[in-house]
Design a protein around this nucleic acid. Structure first.
Lengths: 360, 360
DNA sequence: ATCACACGTGTAAAGGTTTACACTGCGTCA
DNA sequence: TGACGCAGTGTAAACCTTTACACGTGTGAT
């Protein structure tokens, strides 16, 4: 009690003007003094309650309540050589897929006593490198990657062993054995394309081919597998490039009309692309979905608000986040890594942008 | 050199199975040994370069490069009693306004050597309280609030003095003197409503009245001021409640048609609400914007993708984030707080959802 | 020649934990 | 009765920095 009052005066540092007086907080020593035990006992009462006598534990609890003591995380981290923090590296926190996965990550982490630190890299190598200081300075114990590549600076050189435990989400990390948690893109795309086929479509375009994006490639493969499974020949003229942006979807659709090789349905690599296609079709005054069907992938938040509302494959984002964090934490806690890849099923969400062919 | 090799062996802790071998990192002592100076000099060479001789500094730099040394943030934080971390408390990281503000916050923080920690509270009191441990355990030095209220647990009781430096964004914190950085909602709403008036509209609905949300109230006031300034009487039947969700916008519009008291233009409290109104109008097969004009507020990402694309007021989110962080960091560094409120101008973005009245 | 002072560096304390090791009683078993 | 083990606790080291203070040397002024 006495100690605490005295401590309150200290606080302020000698800077000019008025400085923030980060009130000197109660330490484990204050608690020990009040409870009449040693600091070791207080520490044990907190961390290994079974190891201290009931009566002692009670006194310590009381002292803690009285002082409002909280363990100083810095001191603990310093001593334990771990921070209980996870660094999340994302190229763009505005990405519609990001936030829900984040919620999952954060929920699971929080549940297990970890905090999450977010690094928005904007695909800038400097920023990526910069964020690694959190790892190398012990401020974070592990890494979740949204970026689809190893952080710049952790190249393919021998330094590999320096890598902290990592898990990739959203996009797998190519050419590495970083475990990945995500949706089964191949299977999901196949289900999506099969849905279009089941509605009578046979001329189905794929919008969003890309030689560089693993996700796009998997979804294209799923599309091809579905067509093949139904005995439909793949028409290369119906496969258009795209980088997954709305604009790329719009352009691809326009391109089709220019070349005048038209499908009856558009299978888009993602919802953003599908939105671009819909914008293009709407602008051309087509009546959707009567004249063209459009299918997306992801089920981002406004898929249901577009007109016509978008039929798409829903990514179980919350689940992805939780699983990824679970996997990472398990590794951190020394459990051997059992799976290099966790694939979750995408769910078909039927709305109004796909209709049965020929239903007039 | 020798030391480092030996250190590499240590690492692993005695847990069962194979444990993560957080490679023992080089410490300031290793560097000092190699450079042939004391650890104090190394520290100075890093933090106050002018205070060490050129030649010494060179040797230290070399030793640092050789060992790959990075200063241990935990030890530093412990010693300095500050973590150079900012905690961001947000009710929903998926909120379309959130991500861009975050980018601003994070950019400014990063520029000044701070990191940001994100707490997604989902408006859950438990989670809010839970996140405060970051503050009370010294893991974060300051707080950015998206929540519009003081974190639960920091009630109105005498404990106020325990509050860490804070800045509110997105929503001001009512009944407190927490500084706020945001858009000038009153002025922005007035500009928006004046735009509608300038297009000939006189029967303008306000969608999104709320007795509890400060933002809604300010925007409503701006709307009223604009009408008043133009000598237009406010018709209470044209003012409808709403909580800012898309669904509330849809319902409000539907409600108007049921009561059959119709405006020529809808001024919506935000873009999400406007989207709901547009969905309703589209569903009723009205030709927009010929038959009804709709105006939003915020300029969220897909305002330009709706059909018709949304005329709205753009919030300077990046700037808001930067200013807010700047303000907070200034306080942390002991500068007196000069402004309790920083209001930035919203910008009118003219798209296709508003048309001149009577243009057929 | 003396003093003052600046510059560059080292020594050691402090910051708040966790935990290996040692110690004290006390009960149990031979 | 003695040996032993166990439960509960304390002591002190270790984690890695930053920085106040002290020290030694060289330079300029008096």
């Amino acid at each position: 009690m006495h100690d605490l009052l005295k401590a309150a005066d200290a606080g302020a540092r000698g800077c000019a003007g008025r400085t923030v007086q980060h009130q000197k907080l109660a330490t484990i020593e204050d608690v020990a003094a009040i409870a009449g035990v040693s600091i070791a006992t207080v520490s044990r009462a907190i961390n290994e309650p079974t190891k201290v006598a009931d009566e002692t534990r009670r006194r310590v609890s009381e002292a803690i309540a009285q002082t409002g003591y909280t363990t100083n995380a810095m001191a603990r981290s310093l001593r334990m050589r771990r921070s209980n923090m996870i660094l999340i590296l994302a190229p763009d926190v505005g990405d519609p897929n990001f936030s829900n996965i984040l919620v999952g990550l954060e929920t699971e982490a929080s549940k297990r006593g970890y905090g999450v630190l977010i690094g928005n890299t904007q695909n800038d190598a400097t920023r990526e490198t910069d964020y690694l200081r959190f790892i190398s300075s012990n401020q974070a114990d592990g890494l979740i990657l949204f970026t689809g590549h190893l952080p710049y600076g952790f190249g393919s050189d021998g330094g590999e062993s320096r890598l902290p435990p990592m898990v990739a989400v959203n996009e797998p990390v190519s050419d590495s054995d970083v475990p990945f948690v995500g949706v089964d893109n191949f299977e999901g795309a196949r289900v999506a394309a099969e849905h279009l086929i089941s509605q009578g479509h046979r001329r189905i375009a794929f919008i969003g081919r890309s030689t560089s994006r693993a996700v796009n490639q998997l979804r294209e493969k799923g599309y091809r597998a579905a067509l093949e499974g139904a005995g439909i020949a793949v028409d290369p003229r119906l496969i258009l490039d795209g980088d997954g942006t709305t604009e790329s979807g719009r352009q691809a659709a326009e391109h089709m009309f220019v070349r005048d090789v038209l499908p009856t349905a558009f299978f888009c690599v993602n919802d953003a692309t599908a939105l671009g296609v819909i914008i293009s079709l709407n602008a051309r005054r087509y009546d959707l979905p009567r004249e063209f069907s459009v299918m997306g992938f992801d089920d981002i938040s406004f898929a249901s608000f577009v007109s016509p509302s978008l039929t798409t494959m829903k990514q179980p984002r919350l689940k992805i986040g939780e699983e990824a964090m679970d996997l990472l934490l398990a590794r951190l806690e020394g459990q051997p890594l059992e799976r290099k890849e966790v694939l979750l099923r995408a769910e078909l969400i039927v709305r109004n942008s796909v209709s049965r062919l020929g239903r007039e």
